[in-house]
Design a binder for these strands. Sequence first.
RNA 1: GGCCCGGUGGCAGAGUGGCCAUGCAGAGGACUGCAAAUCCUCGUACGUCGGUUCGAUUCCGGCCCGGGCCUCCA
Length: 458
Amino acid sequence: MTIHLYNTLLREKQIFEPIDAGNVRMYVCGPTVYDYAHIGNARPVVCFDVLYRLLRHVYGESHVTYVRNITDIDDKIMAAAEKTGESIESITARTAGWYHDDMAALGALPPDREPRATEFVPQMVKLIEQLIAKGFAYEAEKHVLFNVPAMQDYGQLSKRSLDDMIAGARVDVAPYKKHPADFTLWKPSAENQVGWPSPWGRGRPGWHIECSAMSGEILGQVFDIHAGGIDLIFPHHENEIAQSRCAHGSAVMAKYWLHNGFVQVNGQKMSKSLGNFFTVHELLEEGFRGEAIRLALLSAHYRQPIDITREGIQDAKAQLDRFYRALAMVSDLAVEAAPTDHVLAAIADDLNTPLALSELHELVTKLNKATSQAEKKVAKAALLGGAKLLGILWQDPAKWLQSGGSADDAAVIEAQIAARLAARKAKNFAEADRIRDDLAARGILLEDSSSGTTWRRA
RNA sequence: GGCCCGGUGGCAGAGUGGCCAUGCAGAGGACUGCAAAUCCUCGUACGUCGGUUCGAUUCCGGCCCGGGCCUCCA
């Protein structure tokens, strides 16, 4: 199976060729933990989870290393700590826990390694020392800055020239910078702020250096895939590349750079600064299922912008209902899940999840139409195989269809169904329909079939 | 100002130089005591103006509209 991925570095789709097929290495920029994750934060997690699943499928589960960091030191965290008086450790432990819970609810596999910035400060210091030694960084007023003009081909990822950046500069340039584009590697901390000792005094790392340090340490100086949101192309990823390549003297940092499009609300970017976001946590609290949120996120191609709405999640839930209804009909058939070539090819073609999903729908139709056990087994195996790559349909069908909603006890519902059955046998259809309507009013839908009556929640 | 994405049927959303996406919603039919579910059938979709072509939604160019990055941001 040939995997094609759109590489931001070249702005084109490329055949994916791992550096070492025995250990395919991917790094995804993780969250800064100071608050609940919003849907926009969840998108790269879900999209690149599909990539992780694909790579594991193609190269084998033990031949892929997925690293996703946690940024647990940052000015926003410090600001939150100062505001509430809660310690940084306490804030990051709590919010990282929320993050784990929410991403698990979305069916995202945990990464193989989840390094935290605070655990890698010595490596960051070492990297900065190397950059200074090689003339790519300089110290100024207790800061250490990356010397952008020293790098010949800076700007490859974002396709920006130094001139462009000066022309478009919207920021006040700090007086100690030699060049406006120079960025911070290390900055001083005040006495009351967290800090680490360094050759340049007590301080803390700049934003970009942690990813260079952690990816270099865990995945090596050059690895396969680096991914994140489209807004990270500049400056974050551009600067990571500058740091890592200049420190290591390597031609590339990662071979393939992948970027997911934005989650939007009414056609506008969802972001904390705009205040138009909703969190995964609050959607789960409202009763939306994590799997439905996941499917909503996967219903558009990962590089396209996507408008996430409650209606959209509801639509995704309806699709899952269709899948689970079909699976519930064949729950007694044991199969070995294996994706069809079509589904696999769709996902391998730069993660075309909407196309894969449409294939899954056709498999459901096939499954519903199947008359022989053999046909049903083939369709079920294919459906589950594709679903596994997408990270959906992992639940027990009956549980999916019957859980959630009101607190009606299953035994009570079964009793009602029995009463209705008796009424039907006695041809008392008025009573039978009354029971059915009564249940429907409570969100319980009945379905009669030759094999009996089943129920599900609306 | 520089760089970069989009505009597909009522909605969501793939894709393709000539024929089917798919799901939801809608119409009709089969099945059902009636429903639900399921299956079958259906709807002159590709922003706009030109160009290339036997033929363009798909390639090229202009225009209009929307969005993003250039500052923290997934």
